[in-house]
Structure formats: structure tokens, C-alpha cells
Write a protein that binds this DNA or RNA. Structure first.
Lengths: 144, 144
DNA sequence: TGTTATAATGATAATGAAAATCAAAATCAC
DNA sequence: GTGATTTTGATTTTCATTATCATTATAACA
């Protein structure tokens, strides 16, 4: 399997928390790992349900929450109010460039910006933990 | 009045949109302008209702939306899902430093970061419009 | 200053996302 | 296998925001 590491992380997390394995949790994890897009809970639910028709909506919510807790997943709350989820494991930290016309987005990192962000936090007496940065604009395609 | 400019902006906006003035809109605007905090709709409603007890919840929602449209107000969606509103007029663009313990936050700007953000957007073929940046960490007080 | 067309209001219902509830089913240590 | 405990899925609840709609207010104009 290509996702051995991720599966291990999830299993370990379940164990340390005294939680149990289940077909549903495994199914949601598999779908999540197999799709490298920023899915919403609803999209995840629809796809996972194909392989396991009895799957419930609530279970997807519960599982995605566990994935976030164990560090495999990051929740992104966009300005339009929707939440989407992206892979965290094996993906370095990054920020987003988002097209305001078509919604397309790109993952970006600028080490210099990262450095300056750290500096700024410390300058204000903050011990930095994490950050989010989204740049909104119009992409090449939409500008034409 | 100290808020002449802001009131003018709002009135002009209403006119260009073919909308009407009203006591309620004026009341919500006044409260919004008089409090330099990041209020939620609910907080705004409670305060404005004191001066105009017949004020309805929906009107506050509608008015705050107009304030955002005319550039007096900016909506901030925080990670906890709540929306809060901050003054935009006469306040330069800024980002936020947010304490993950106590929720306190500070407005910050780093011109160098701003410049690098522009550069990064352009580097990816984006015509930058705006951005949001939030740095999360633990503030001095909470760290002790 | 009326008249009148149009927009705004406020009470309430509708919506939609996320969380809570709970009986039945699944898991796993023994 | 047994039994304590957790998970599940269907459903309800919650809560923020929007939509609806009859009534009221606004403002251009006679």
C-alpha cells in the first residue's frame, strides 16, 4: 500500500485515545487519502458511500474530525463559509492563492514570508504556533 | 460629528443603489462607528436595540451587509466559525495576530510581507486583489 | 402638503451546516 | 464466546443566516 504511513498514524491515534477500528472509519480514510483535492464533507460522503452504501453522514463528520486531530488532515474555512479538507501528512505547510472568478486555487510557500511572519509574531510577544494566509486575485485564465 | 465622512459614504452608497435612508440603518451605522471592536451581528443587535427597541434582527444583518458593500466594514470569519465585523474606513489594511488561549488579537502590518505577497501572486500569474493573513500563537500574558 | 410607487421593516419561517441523541450493532480484551 | 464499551446511522436539535410577506416608511412629484 502507498498509504501505509498515514494508516499507521490513524491507527496509532485511535489506540492512544482508546478508540476502536471500524470499517466505516477505514473507508472514509481511504477515500480521503486517495483523492488529492480539497473535498467538502458532502463530497467525501458521496464518494465513500459508493463503496459502503450504509455509511451515514454523521460518521463522515466524526471521522474527518479524527483525521484533523491526528494530523492527517487540515480544515480550511473559506470566505464563502464552506469548509474543505486537505491532506497534511507528507505535504509541507503551504498557503493558498485563490481565484475570485473561478475558485481555482494553488498551493504556495514563500520561505521569506514564513520567516517574516515568525519575526512579526515574536515582535509582538507572541509565541507563534501556525498561521493561515490566503491571497485572492484573478488568475491568468480568467483575466483574459 | 466625527463620523461625517463615514456617514457620507453610506448615504452616497444608498443613493447610487437607489436605496432609501431609514432610522434603523442610521442607528446601526452609528453603533457600528462608535465602537472600535470586532463585533458580531448579535452584539451589534443588542447594543443598537437599546436605542431603538423595535429594531429587528434581520435589519442588522441587512445593514451590516450594506456597510461591507460600501467599504465601511469588513467581515472576518474566524476559525471558530463566527463572523465579526471591523472598521475599514480610515483603517489601513492590516492582518491579525490571534492568541489561541485567550482569543485576544492585535492588528499588524508588515510592509515587507505585503510586498512579497504581491510578488508571489504575480509569480503565479494572479492579479492580486486582496489577502487575509492570520498568525496564531500564544500571547505574552498567557504564556506565563 | 397630499399622493403614490417603491423600498424597508420586523416577525416569523425556511434553510443548511454541524452537533447531539439514542437504540441497535460492532469491536475487542478477556 | 461473553460482555463491557464504543460506534454507527437515522433522526432530531441547534444555531447562524436568509427568505418571505404583510405592514409601514420613504421620497419624488403633483
Amino acid at each position: 500500500m502507498t498509504n501505509d504511513n498515514e494508516e499507521k498514524i490513524f491507527e496509532d491515534y485511535l489506540e492512544t485515545q482508546g478508540l476502536k477500528h471500524s470499517r466505516q472509519r477505514k473507508g472514509v480514510l481511504d477515500v480521503f487519502l486517495s483523492i488529492d483535492k480539497h473535498l467538502s464533507v458532502d463530497e467525501l460522503y458521496r464518494i465513500a458511500k459508493k463503496k459502503n452504501p450504509s455509511l451515514g453522514y454523521a460518521t463522515v463528520y466524526r471521522t474527518i474530525k479524527l483525521l484533523c486531530e491526528c494530523g492527517l488532515c487540515r480544515e480550511l474555512r473559506f470566505e464563502d463559509g464552506t469548509s474543505r479538507y486537505e491532506h497534511l501528512y507528507g505535504h509541507r505547510h503551504h498557503d493558498h492563492l485563490i481565484c475570485t472568478k473561478c475558485g481555482r486555487f494553488v498551493e504556495v510557500v514563500d520561505p521569506e514570508i514564513e520567516r517574516l511572519q515568525e519575526r512579526m509574531a515574536k515582535l509582538h510577544g507572541f509565541y507563534p504556533e501556525r498561521h493561515r494566509m490566503e491571497l485572492y486575485g484573478i488568475c491568468k485564465r480568467c483575466k483574459k
